[in-house]
Nucleic acid binder design. Structure first.
Lengths: 108, 108
DNA sequence: ACCTCTATTGACATAATGTGTCAAAATTAA
DNA sequence: TTAATTTTGACACATTATGTCAATAGAGGT
């Protein structure tokens, strides 16, 4: 898998690619995360949900850009919601429009 | 609420607006949907999730464009996932890119 | 073949979340 | 006030998510 096509991959595949580049076994990474090896294996293969917390910890462990991984992680969650809906792309466009509207109008 | 700003509203508020335009009480609509009045009330106020099935039934009951409501419904689910994430808009852009990629490459 | 390390799979108990039903309370209109 | 409508909260139940563990599978080296 090249860097170019990585953006269209799931966060799981991306994390596995990065881990294998570092030549780190699941066993070691799972230990650092303090989670079961089975869970990390399933997370990389999309069988279990990854939490934001784990993504941030992995960015730290792999010394990889956290924002890049977070965007990938969030887009995964988004795509899961629209699955194979015909109107998915339309919904994404409206969601972006609404997100910008919310961002512009929120008081802090 | 005007039609112009309706696109930035939740599916719930939109459905309530349409229902009130038709001057239909929750009681009657809930009966047509065969669900409890309390649930429909909560759905309109975003306290309970609306199902795709209910959205389609309401489009029929209100004689309102189903695709329009579905896009609104899906964008609601999408925005729920990114909540108030700083990287939300970036994630939406990546998700759209990935959705287009998937759409272009899927075999049926 | 063996042995070792690594990764995957599935079963299980428990936790967390979602859902339907109902009645009381609150709101609104007449 | 009376009646209709809507909201709120509590409850039991169903569904889904999660962590733990052990058995299985796979790849390499000896």
């Amino acid at each position: 898998m090249s860097i170019e096509v990585m953006s269209t991959e799931t966060i799981g595949k991306k994390l596995r690619y990065i881990r294998e580049e570092k030549e780190l076994p699941l066993r070691k990474v799972a230990a650092l995360l303090d989670i079961d090896v089975a869970i990390l294996s399933k997370m990389e293969r999309g069988e279990r949900r990854i939490t934001k917390e784990v993504v941030l910890k992995l960015a730290n462990i792999y010394d990889y850009n956290a924002d890049d991984l977070l965007v990938s992680y969030l887009s995964d969650k988004i795509l899961y919601e629209i699955q194979d809906e015909d109107l998915g792309i339309e919904a994404l466009k409206l969601a972006e429009q609404r997100a910008k509207y919310i961002k512009a109008n929120k008081k802090k």
